[in-house]
Write a protein that binds this DNA or RNA. Structure first.
Lengths: 190, 190, 190, 190
DNA sequence: GGCTAATCGAGACGGTACGTCCCGTCTTTAG
DNA sequence: CTAAAGACGGGACGTACCGTCTCGATTAGCC
């Protein structure tokens, strides 16, 4: 027996409008300066309805991230067969986001959220496409010159480099994606 | 004549006790939850004295970082001549900090500060030893198999990987430093 | 035919446990700090069940008052034939309630409820025994030296004096009941 | 030495506008429905400025009462030499306030405040003129037929009767003041 | 027996207000 | 002119309740 709960059921309309409002305000104002109060007001919802389902704004942002409401596109690496080229395309896509208006601010907000909230932290890498990338590399281990089991380290290094770019406020220059892949993947795979 | 301003001069005692209090509270409570009010109280100082000299708590933290009051040790890579070994030692040192009690929390607080404040962001990499590492690699370019001009990318990738570790809440395992260096520097340099 | 409604009938168990819970919480926490939510929880009842039958907590308290669940005893004046003595006994009884632990708080809660809710207000005097006292005095008018038709004023003055005692936080001293009757009834009736 | 305190001094402007706003909102909305938040907004003041100086809205109302900002007129009994006539005039004045638009509501709000807050409770009687009346009666003890030391009881009874009128929602009729004085002062003084 | 209607418990919902924390600014007194 | 102290207007926090509503379950008269 599924042990039915009693009482009114959770309102999907409220949930949706809260997440939408969160995503919008996150993009507009950044993670700091994002307040539960303003989310509630923008969503046309009582504050308690937010606190009933999410412990803090960090988890709200985490759920938005999971639903793909924060990043403008699906940042998955393409698969043309040539890993190196795919990596470069992928990084260039990410860099393009970073260079878009307020793109860096959005990324830094994401980092701030990841620093404060466990859920966001655990999902940050995957949201940038790291997860599918890892399994992709793992599958190709033998075929490429990459040492086996290094997938995690490579992805960590590449995503980490992107994060450092956002944190260090260094402007991105053309060719950066290629140089980065070159540095991490090494000469051997060229 | 050096054009001395009239009136009382800035109190060094106040400055020091403010920075000390900031560093202590930063370590205890993290970047969020760090408040100017509590710093002033802990330092035995009026709030105005803080606002007179620093624009926000971010800059306070930046100055602490610059003075080496936030990280427990000097995180400079050693120089034994063997770059690969030095990198591993350096990363192991950083990982050791991460594994110390609240070490990860401290690192995440640093990242949060870097995400919010430009100064902290610009200095984060250097504070972890990235700056001296870069010049070291640049100097050795020809000697090693590293492609010329890749120093920045390599350091970015390594430091970035560390940052991702802290953000993703992945526990560190023995050998991780070596694997990371292996992945980034590639087989060719072994 | 009494035009019976269809559907389930009002649950007497719910009604009783609501009133009991109300009376208990009223005594424990006072009229302010008394919440429908806590009554419902204490009574093991849904909030709607309360709102279905009572418009507000004021009416709940009014019904408790009417059922004698709020005041510890029946505060009716005795009837020995000697009005003056009876009045003194009655006031002494009320004063005894006031002096009991939290007795004054209870009385003030009752006054607060009376100030907010019409029903409670109209019943307050009667609950303290004023109603039966009035008819008693009216019946004795000629026999005593009391001017005819003054019953209402006398009762109002006596009960009012008790209320003022509770409001003014003046401690009660022995003999107060007698002095009060003396002041209101005057020397002529002694 | 007067042990001078440091730091900015309390703003009289803020204090005044808070009390004015309190008095206005008290008259408009009553003691329940009076909220610190609305007072702060109406006074153009931060909530903390209220909480810094008053523990609760009860004390705010108490201070307004003390400054005579709540009751429309000075409700002191006149002194023509004839106590009975003066008492009647005084009660008629109070009854006139009760009969004015929202006058009864104001009185009940005052009673509610008195029931909740000690300060208001202690001052309620005095604010209605009870204090000056008591000393007046005491001074005349021998001259009148009033038993010595009965001043407090008489005032308590009279003011209490007024309070009961407000609580019981009984409409006031012409001659009520006289009947009340008659009942309390007795035939002897007629 | 099935239908309809009312009740009950539970509890989600949009709101208001609470009392607290902290912001960044301003004011006061002391050195 | 700096400094400690601290009051100020304001924004947001997370919590408590308000009164309404929506559920599923139960109960009782009616066809």
């Amino acid at each position: 027996m599924p042990e039915r709960r009693r009482g009114a059921v959770r309102s999907e309309a409220a949930r949706t409008s809260i997440l939408t409002a969160t995503a919008r305000l996150f993009a507009e104002r950044g993670y700091d300066h994002l307040s539960i109060e303003s989310i509630a007001a923008a969503a046309g919802v009582g504050k308690q309805t937010i606190y009933r389902w999410w412990p803090s704004k960090g988890f709200l942002v985490a759920e938005c991230l999971l639903e793909g409401m924060l990043l403008p596109e699906r940042l998955e690496p393409p698969d043309t067969g040539d890993l190196r080229t795919d990596l470069i395309s992928w990084l260039e896509e990410i860099f393009r986001v970073l260079e878009s208006p307020n793109g860096e601010g959005l990324m830094r907000s994401l980092i701030a959220a990841a620093a404060e909230n466990d859920e966001v932290g655990k999902r940050l890498g995957a949201s940038l496409g790291g997860l599918s990338l890892m399994s992709r590399i793992n599958a190709q281990d033998e075929a490429s010159g990459i040492s086996p089991g290094a997938a995690r380290e490579i992805v960590e290094a590449l995503v980490g480099a992107v994060v450092m770019r956002a944190l260090s406020r260094t402007p991105i220059e053309s060719g950066d994606a290629e140089r980065l892949v070159q540095a991490v993947l090494g000469v051997a795979v060229s």
